[in-house]
Every structure is written in C-alpha cells, then in structure tokens.
Design a protein around this nucleic acid. Sequence first.
DNA 1: TGACATGCATAAGGGATGCCTATGCGCCGC
DNA 2: GCGGCGCATAGGCATCCCTTATGCATGTCA
Lengths: 301, 301
Amino acid sequence: MQLRQLEYFLAVWEAGSFSGAAARLYVTQPSLSQQIGALEKELGAILLERGRQGVTLTPAGRVFLPRAQDVIRAVQDSQDAVREVVEGRHGDVHVLTVRSVASGILPPSAARWHSTYPSTVLRLHDYSHRRDLEEAMRSGQGDIAVGPRPDPWEGPVISLGYEEMVVTGSAEYPAGTAADPAELAAADWVLYEQEQGMSEVVDRLAGHLGFTPRAVARTGQVSAALLFAVEGIGVTVTPENAVPLRWSRHARRIGPGCFRELVVFSRKLPSQLAERYRDMLTTLELPLTAERDLPEGALRV
Amino acid sequence: MQLRQLEYFLAVWEAGSFSGAAARLYVTQPSLSQQIGALEKELGAILLERGRQGVTLTPAGRVFLPRAQDVIRAVQDSQDAVREVVEGRHGDVHVLTVRSVASGILPPSAARWHSTYPSTVLRLHDYSHRRDLEEAMRSGQGDIAVGPRPDPWEGPVISLGYEEMVVTGSAEYPAGTAADPAELAAADWVLYEQEQGMSEVVDRLAGHLGFTPRAVARTGQVSAALLFAVEGIGVTVTPENAVPLRWSRHARRIGPGCFRELVVFSRKLPSQLAERYRDMLTTLELPLTAERDLPEGALRV
DNA sequence: TGACATGCATAAGGGATGCCTATGCGCCGC
DNA sequence: GCGGCGCATAGGCATCCCTTATGCATGTCA
C-alpha cells in the first residue's frame, strides 16, 4: 500500500469521479485508474463503484474511507510536528546533569527558559555520577548536558566556568579563610559513596594534596554530608554553591583554591532548542569563576 | 513521504542500527541509508544520530517516532477493517426501502438477521417514494433495496413476490369480497400527497380502471389514509399488509385483484453481507403472492 | 437512429525511482 | 598498523509509475 494510493482514493471520492480528481491532482485519469485498481487488488475488495453518475462507495469503501483519512491525517501530523521542532516553536529539551549541579546552576536557567519559551518543555534528568551522565548522553537520552568536562566527547563542549570546592566542618571561620592541606590530611572525613560523583572529586583532591582521607562516615547526598560535617562528625568537601548561606562561615577555601570545571555539552547535532538553551546558559550570570580569574596554583579536580 | 520510509525508520530504531534493520527487513543496508536519508531530507531534520554504539533519536526523531507509529497503525487498521468486511465478519448493510414496505416486510427479516449475525449492523432507511429510493441507491447510499421494481437498473434484481392492494372504506364485508370498478369510480377518495409513493399506485390503478378518483382528503401516511377511510370520509387503497387485523373486514379486493411487485435489488457489486441479506429475504416466508399464484386478469400497478 | 461527447479501462513507451553490488570513510580493537 | 565493523556513496539495472493513445460503454443531440 502506498500513501499516494490513499490520497488518490480520497481525491476521487471527494471529486466524485476519476477524471475530476485527475484534473484536481494534476495527473492523468489513467494514473488514477491504475493506482486505485492496484489498491483495490491489494485489499482484495472494490472500494469504488464506477457508475455513470459518478463513483459511489462500496461497503468496503465506506469502511476504508475514514481509515484512509486517519492515515493521511497522521502523516500530516507527523510532518507538522517535525516542522515545529525544526523551527524551534515546539518541542522539548532533555537536559542532563549531575545532582550537584542540578540544585545549584540549573534552577535559575530553567525559570528563565520557561518564561522565554513557554510553549516548550525543559526536561531535567540528574544523575548521581558523571559516568552515568555521559553514558545517558551517549545513548541519546539527552540533548544537552551540564556537568564536568567529558572525555572524550564527539560533540561541541563549551566551558561555563569553574565552581569552587570548599571544605566544611563544625568550626566557623572568617570569610576567605583557607584550610591547610596538612590539617585536611589529619582530619576525620565525611566521604561519599562510590556512586556519588563527589567521591571522585574528593579522591582527586586528596591525590593532589598527597593524602588518603580517613572516612568516619559515608553518604550519597551532598546535603547529608554537609549536615554531618556541621554537626561535627568530620569535614567534607562540597561545591561552594551547595553550602547554604547560614553555614557559609563553616566553609573554607582549600589551599590556594580547588576548582571543578563545569561545561555544557551536547550531541553532535544539537537541535535548535538545545542550542538556544546552551546560549542561555553561557550568557547567564552564573555563580562560577572564569578561567582567567582562577587563583595562582589552583587545584583542578 | 512514503510508507516504506516510515517502516524503515521504525525498523532502524527498533533494531538500533541500520545494518541490523536491513537484515531484519531482508534488504541491504544502503537501501535503508538512502530511504531514511530521503525522509530526513524531505522533513528537513535529522531523525537519527548515527553513532558507534548504534543509532539514537534526535529531538526531531523523538517527536516523529510516535507519529510514524500512528501512521503505520492506521494503515494496518484500514487493511484489517477492509478484510473484515470482505470476509463478512463485520460491517453494516444499508437497507433502503419505501415506507409502505418498511412496516410490513422488513421487521421479521431484521429480527432474524440480528440473531444470525449479531456482530453486524443492519441500517434501515425508508423513503416516501420509490423515486427517492432509487435515487439514493444510484448515489450509493445503500447496499440493497426493497421496493417496487426499478427501471432501469444496472445491478441484480430479484422478485420477492406480489403484495396485494386493497380498497378500504367504512363499510364491512365478508372476507374475499371484491369491489366493483364502477363503484370505485363513483366513490369519494382519500388520496395521497404527491410525495407519497402510494399516490403513484392509485394513479396507475385508476388509469387501469379508466376513471379519475375524486379526492376528498389527502395524506402522506398510509396509516392516516386507512384511519380516514374507516371513519367514512372516503375509500382508499393500501397494501393489504398495512391493514390492521381489526379492520380486515373493511378491506376488499379490487376487481380481479390488484398487485404490486416487490423486488430486492442491489448495487452492481453487492457485498458479502448484502448478498446474505438478500438470500435471507428470498428464502423467508413473506406474506406475498408468488407470480404463478396471481389471479387471472390481475391488475399490476 | 447514427454521430458525438463523456467517463473509465487498457496497452505500450519512456522516465523516474529504488534496490543491488561495490567501494569509501571513520572508528575501534587486536 | 591492520583488519573488522558500520554507515555513506556511486553506478548498474530492474521495476514502477506516469504519460499518450486507444477501446468500450453509455447517454445525448440532431
């Protein structure tokens, strides 16, 4: 069965005759005879009864007609839907992030997106580990991702800036205080479970500083780690953005500063909407440090 | 856009790769590349992102996929629906009649049909005049018709028998009494409106007998004409089957007998179900007179 | 009643389409 | 670095579809 056959059938029915439909379709009448004949042969039923006062539907044709219309409608729907996506008027953007970013960076951008493109939907999925994030992106579940720089990556990768990692404990300090590496090496630590992306950050940080943290507790959530740390169980490392304002005095810079790069990366062929979201992210004033503003000797994790 | 392209697209998505889908579809991989490439070009959007770990949907593909499935589903629905009609397992029969028949002959056949083919629907439409009936049949609104013999008719016509026309008035007579033509010529008549099919019957009857009926009342309904006649306004002619049993003594045969042939006729290519209904009608014991049982010199209207 | 007009079916030719084989390209793994 | 894998591309060829030309049936008009 071919779509053209259905279109011809509908045209003949609407025109009431083969030759009339042929004129309307800018084809010759034999084409219609052939195509509709082929359609009827394939279906095993005569659809149109040819008479002198035009064609009439047979019972099979009566049943077939609305279904053929459904098919044509569905085809047009599909074309329209794709067109809307192409033109960016409609569609959804699947944004993938890691949890530690989802709570800090994304909300303001999502709010602004919704007010700018109210007819589109931003779908956020957050993963607990960058590994899961990248795997989901590679398998096509997302259009755009915000997280640590993936390596390697086929599509475009744009840096958003660096977020600072801070160490938090029960004691309070004046703003701008830096923690001594030797102190961190000796401290009790609230660490993360293996599946949590922050565990990798702590590992790399400890590697940079040359010690192995002594774990007194493990959690899968940044907020829980902070809670434990402020309660005095040990110290922990979190993104600065994840520290609530009321605990900001508990957080200290790590040595000269410890930073993690955040990038936005997308599939090889980002959609119109995904590009717009990326543009919005890169132009937004994010609470991140630009690469040129990184302090001398900053640690990168 | 072609249906095959949609099928290929769905197959590639289901198989997760071009070559896998090619094997499943028993075509070569280049065919899929070409067809899907053509589809994407026509839609103006890439639907599938080709990667090393198989294909993934682009945003446009995500939107397009369910619509393509809708199209394919609709196509299969249409094929199934036609098949059911062809096999007679489903469908409807549009039965067209004139009113005077609808009340007499059809009800028992309809009841029997419903009990024999409960999954099918008998749709009855009755027309006030044979002219309208034939016009409706010619325009394809019905599959099968029961009424006076149409002339000319392209499709099959099968005689059901003859129904007798009787004259009814206020007086009562013994069963089998015949009315005298001269009496009818002198009588006051309850006639039918022009649009009523029975008016033609009366005209032809009067023509046969050589008089012009003097109208004292006109109605569009057979039941009303009978009521008027029994009330003594005048005499009228109705099918014998239309005379209620309680008034049967008021009805008299007209001369040697006046009969109207009832036939069942259908479109040139009757459907399976229409043929079954026709068979049912012809085998049913109908309250009609066979041609060979018509009395000598019977009038045919 | 015979010539014409109308409407669909059929036949044959030409052009476009789609599938095939063969090959190229990029990537991965050994 | 070499073969394997997967998709894209090119060229040959069969098929399909549209076209023109014609046939057939019917209805119309002179």
